[in-house]
Every structure is written in structure tokens, then in C-alpha cells.
Amino acid sequence: MRYFGQDNLYDMSYDQQRRLFWEKVAMVFQAAQNTLNPLLRIRQQILDIAQDHDIDFQQAMNSAKQLCEIMYLDSERVLNAYPHELSGGMKQRVSIALALLLNPSLVVLDEPTTALDVISQASVLRILNDVRKSHNLSLIFITHDISVISEIVDRIIVMYAGRIVETGPVRDVILHPRHPYTQGLLASIPPLRGNLSRTRALRGQPADLLHLPHGCAFHERCPRAFSRCRQEAPRLLTDDHGQTGVACHLYASDSGENVL
């Protein structure tokens, strides 16, 4: 695992790793409520990060205050609060602010909105979208909810049973899904208006990762599976620029050649 052409993360010493963490790559967790040390005020936790990354306290506090403003948080109140004194949405926004504290170039977001109600979800997403533009950073957004991210992301990578099954710019993937799994995901989103009976769920259960089916991991649930799917796992075939790709026998010739 490498980060922007640097050394392999797994070969690094603890101190080299921890320099990379948060200074270059930051993360927002799914249950942000629990990612703050319950015994320390938010201010102290910011100072801890600043101290361990050799950043001036005053400078860290200033950028923390700015970030609070961006997150629509009352910095006076929030910085002096203990985690349990904040609501779930506030804690989520605090943890996003913490992630941006050291100006990382990449932020990994692991379902950052699932624990929130719809209103907070929308505001967090709006904030993320603004911040990504103003701070010039990349987001990796891990989610099961395609509709939530389609507003924010540029590219979608659809994974099934731990493998990439389809990738492409968000418009292409949403408007012209090719892999049957992506098609199924999109079909399962209930429409805002119109007939709910048109919503279809994929049949079957998610694949058991300990006993993956032979061939394509998805073939047991795939409406368009044919004999080859049971024998052979499809490779991810990409177009010339590597911009779009799909791992499905429906789009491959017998020789495994690219037919896109």
C-alpha cells in the first residue's frame, strides 16, 4: 500500500506512519460519536494533535476556529465542550473539522452520514462539498447509498464481495450502469415520486466472504448470469484511459479482450 509514490506504508516505522497519518491522509469514521476521547475537552484533543505533529498551539487553535465556522459550529462553545455535551451531528462535524485540521490532501470518509438524521446528513454533505472545493482536497467516500454521494463525488467505484465490479465517472455509472450489480443497486433506490412497486431489490443474500461462490462472486444473484459466470471469475476490463471499467462476462469477448 503506497501513498502518492512514497514508501510502502506497511514497511514504515511507527513514527514515519504517524507523520503521514492526519498530515497527508485523514479519516472520518462512521460512528464519529465515539471517535473522541470522552475525558478530554475538544480543545485539548486539538492541542494533542497539534503537539504530536509539531504545530504551534495558537496556529492550531486559529485553524480550528476557522474550521468550526465552516462547519456552522459555535467555536467558543464547542471547543470548550466535552464530547458528551455535543449532539451526534455536532460531533460528526467536529470530527470532520479535526480531519481537516492539518490540511491533508486526502480524506477517507467511512459512511460519515449514516448515524445522522436526514437534515444533518444534507448539511454535512453540503459542507463536505464546499470544503472539498475550497481546500482543494480529495475525498474517498465509502458508502452503500449511491444516491447520497452522487451529488458530491466525481468517480464511483462499485465493489462487490471485496472486488471492484464497475468504475467510472459518476454520470456514466448512474445513468448507464453496466454491471448487473450496479443496475440492481440503482433499481433498489425508491423513487421520490411515482410508483413504489417499481423499486426492486436484488434477490438472494450478500455473498458469504468465507465461502465465495465459484466463478463470478455475483452469479448466484445475477439476473443475467450464464454458464461462463459459474466457471470463471471476470477480470476488470477498462477503456484506454482507465477511466471506466467493468468486471463482467457480458462485456467481454471469449478471448477476454476488451470490447468496450
Binding site: 507523520r19 497519518f21 469514521f29 476521547n37 494533542d48 504530536d52 505533529h53 479535526l98
Partner: peptide, 17 residues
Amino acid sequence: NDDFMMAARIRGLTRQR
């Protein structure tokens, strides 16, 4: 096993902290 311990690790805090 608490989340904040993993978060502390990802935040690049020193072992001591």
C-alpha cells in the same frame, strides 16, 4: 476496542499519548 483508540492511532498521535 473503543473507536476513539483507533481514531487516536489514525490521528498520528505518539505512542505515549
